[in-house]
Design a protein around this nucleic acid. Sequence first.
DNA 1: GACATAGTTTATAATAGTTCTAAACTATAG
DNA 2: CTATAGTTTAGAACTATTATAAACTATGTC
Lengths: 139, 139
Amino acid sequence: MSNREANYIKKLRNSGLRPTKQRIKICEALFDRDKTFHFSISDLMKIIKNLHNEKISLATVYNTIHAFQKKGYLKEINLGNENSFYDTNTSLHHHFYDEQTKELIDINSEEVELKKIPTPPSGKKIEDIEVTFKISKNI
Amino acid sequence: MSNREANYIKKLRNSGLRPTKQRIKICEALFDRDKTFHFSISDLMKIIKNLHNEKISLATVYNTIHAFQKKGYLKEINLGNENSFYDTNTSLHHHFYDEQTKELIDINSEEVELKKIPTPPSGKKIEDIEVTFKISKNI
DNA sequence: GACATAGTTTATAATAGTTCTAAACTATAG
DNA sequence: CTATAGTTTAGAACTATTATAAACTATGTC
Ligand SMILES: [Mn+2]
Ligand SMILES: [Mn+2]
Ligand SMILES: [Zn+2]
Ligand SMILES: [Zn+2]
């Protein structure tokens, strides 16, 4: 058993999730990465199919992603409304978004600063702020 | 024929869209308003049903909304990924978003100013910037 | 106004993403 | 080892959206 695998097992147990082989594989697909991973369920299905040539049922992938989201290991992101996207970076952060290529790139919170902030409607307070920079090819 | 109706007919003709009674009704439902309207297709279907007690087929509502979007009279907005939302404010602007009530409120561009902007990836330029202020009830 | 025609509406079927169901399987506590 | 609650799975069901193709209508021409 690899060191990483042991960590996933620990993490799953600590969250009250049984460390099944399916969940460990999904952890590997999602979290064995240098950079933040932005993905749809169908992206993930393809990756799992390639990574291990053993399959995990679609229902299990949905179940697991929802469980991980509930435990705070994933954040849902709102892009085009075709299908759901998830983000392995669960901290508050911003994005570059290329609508042509559908590519999303993380921006750390510190790299964006607001000078002027609008007053929220009465009785409401600002919970968090998310900035999307739509980008496109330079001529 | 009301003054507003005459304007919708003119606007539709100018866009190369025939002013059918369905399209005029949809214009009334969408644009006879003081404030920006943020809506889903099912919201709009309900409004049409109440406004005139005559129905417009779902396919026509989809066709019309897509035609209006193409002509630039509506903008699609990305919220929760259940279904599509549209915005009658097609200018570049920002939003307050209450996730509990699912309420969206417009913020004019001038009411938000950025001090620090991140450098886009090489070969890409920033096309536009959208800021979402997630809000919630005060205590 | 009548006619031809392209544009539009409509019911319905098809598709796609997601959730539900219930039976088989499995991790874990005792 | 056993019992049990949690999990996986195939497939059905559900929902939003798009496609299809026939009926209808706005509009330009005579
Ligand atoms: Mn869409
Ligand atoms: Mn969702
Ligand atoms: Zn991200
Ligand atoms: Zn708006």
